[in-house]
Design a protein around this nucleic acid. Sequence first.
DNA 1: TAGCTGACGAAAA
DNA 2: TTTTTCGCCAGCT
Length: 114
Amino acid sequence: MKSKPESDFFYMVFEVVRLIPPGRVTTYGAIAKCLGMKGSSRMVGWAMNSSHSHHSKVPAHRVVNREGLLTGKHHFATPMMMQQLLEKEGIKVTKDKINGFKNHFWDPNEALKM
DNA sequence: TAGCTGACGAAAA
DNA sequence: TTTTTCGCCAGCT
């Protein structure tokens, strides 16, 4: 009997990613650290992959790796979609990398801290 | 059932 | 300083 719809990990990850404000991006490690899974950064990305089965909308395009590279773009409907979405939110993306990544970086710890 | 993969990150050499 | 290896934990075959 599972009381949880999905694993707590994935659910929390989805919630955090969903909390990301428009025009801001975060990293897998930041989310993982926020959830207390510092070393489980992989799970965060893996959760995104599972997000396809998740009915909730998870702005995975706002989640990039620590380098600000759109590593997961390939998992979207189209690799270009991720960049388009980011640019549409005002984030400049050059060569699959966020221009001024740290400038758009959003720390989930601050959001949960409140 | 058991093992491998996987959208990363950090530490060690 | 840069490069390489290990660790995370769960889902999928």
